[in-house]
């Protein structure tokens, strides 16, 4: 049975910063994200928690990105790779270091290019602009080293892509439950699920992506 989906997006996602001035310049002054909330908190608790400021920027849709600035806390690592939260040595592959990011949605190319202009006029210019054929994105790193993406869809997501995503995940769970999961094993398992479950699928019948279709 399907669980009712009652959540309403991102309330906030939070990151530490050692550079509140740069962070405010980047999010408020360069990107134009309003400051919508902040908490000035005296340190408390058992760990000698420092006094801190917890401040929030609106990223659209009433969703928010938030930061913690801790008075007196020095940077917690000195790795050159990564961000202020996590640093990585040379043994960690670059694709892994670059995997974690926040992607902010815009409606169309005009809006994407507007944010590109704002970033390119700042100390944090766009590092990459990529059309992935179905989406177009720009990327930069904020003053804390966190990767930020702006993205727009080049066409609406189709209902069959929801079906495909669900078959992928079911196939993935099956192959990671066995020894030595691989891409080839996933594609073989997914082919079985397609044959078993996709034939009866009809656009608009979203239940077909879930429990209403017999499990294989």
């Amino acid at each position: 049975m399907t669980l009712e989906h009652k959540v309403r997006g991102v309330d906030h996602t939070a990151f530490p910063t050692f550079d509140p001035a740069g962070t405010v310049r980047f999010y408020r002054d360069v990107l134009g994200f309003p400051v919508v909330h902040s908490i000035c908190a005296a340190g408390w608790g058992p760990e000698n928690h420092p006094d801190f400021i917890h401040f929030f920027f609106d990223i659209g849709n009433d969703d928010r990105i938030a930061f913690f600035y801790y008075f007196g806390l020095e940077p917690v690592h000195d790795h050159e790779r990564g961000d202020v939260y996590a640093g990585f040595g040379p043994d960690v592959p670059e694709f892994f270091v670059r995997s974690r990011h926040l992607a902010i949605h815009v409606d169309d190319q005009d809006d994407l290019l507007e944010y590109r202009r704002r970033l390119d006029d700042s100390s944090w210019p766009v590092e990459m602009q990529i059309q992935h054929e179905t989406i177009e994105s720009i990327y930069t790193h904020d003053p804390n080293g966190y990767m930020v993406e702006f993205t727009r869809a080049m066409r609406p997501v189709t209902p069959q892509e929801d079906l495909d995503a669900n078959l992928t995940i079911d196939a993935l769970l099956d192959v990671v439950a066995e020894p030595e999961p691989s891409f080839g094993k996933l594609l073989a398992r997914k082919a079985e699920l397609i044959v078993a479950r996709a034939a009866d699928w009809e656009a608009g019948a979203s239940a077909a992506t879930g429990d209403a279709v017999a499990q294989v």
Partner: peptide
Amino acid sequence: HAVWYSCVAGVA
């Protein structure tokens, strides 16, 4: 490349 390398849904 993005579409090409993600176009396969299954192989039997």
